[in-house]
Amino acid sequence: MSENCSGECSECSKSCEKRDLHEKLHEGSKVKKVIGIVSGKGGVGKSLVTSLLACKISRDGLKAAILDADITGPSIPTAFGLGEEKAESATMTLKDGKAGQYIKPVKSKGGIQIMSMNFLLPEETTPVIWRGPVISGAVRQFWTDVVWEDVDCMFVDCPPGTGDVPLTVFQSIPVDGIIVVASPQQLVRVIVEKAVNMANMMNVPVLGLIENMSYVKCPDCGREMKIFGESNIEGIAKDFNLKVLARIPIEQKMSVTVDNGEIEILDEGYIDEAAHAVEALNA
Rank of each mutant, 00 (worst) to 15 (best):
Q101M: 11
T78V: 11
A64T: 08
G73S: 12
I57H: 06
A69Y: 04
M92E: 06
V106A: 08
Y102C: 07
S89K: 15
T91E: 07
G137H: 11
L62M: 09
E88V: 06
T125F: 05
G81H: 05
I114E: 00
R59M: 10
L120R: 01
E88P: 08
I71E: 01
K86H: 13
W130F: 13
T78G: 07
T126K: 06
A90C: 05
M92L: 07
I71H: 02
L67M: 15
T125P: 00
G110T: 14
K104A: 07
P105V: 11
T126I: 01
S58C: 10
T91P: 00
P133I: 13
G61H: 05
E88W: 00
L67Q: 10
V134Y: 03
F80I: 06
E88G: 05
E124R: 15
R131L: 09
K107T: 13
E123A: 12
K109N: 14
G110Q: 09
S116I: 03
L82F: 03
S116N: 02
A99M: 13
I76T: 13
L67E: 10
L94H: 14
G81Q: 04
P74V: 02
S116E: 01
L121Q: 03
T78K: 14
V134F: 05
A65D: 02
S58H: 09
A87V: 02
Y102M: 06
E123C: 01
P74D: 00
D60P: 00
G110I: 14
V106P: 09
K86E: 03
T125E: 14
E88F: 00
L94T: 13
G111S: 04
I129Q: 15
S108N: 05
T126Q: 13
S116A: 02
T126D: 14
A99N: 13
E84R: 03
L121M: 14
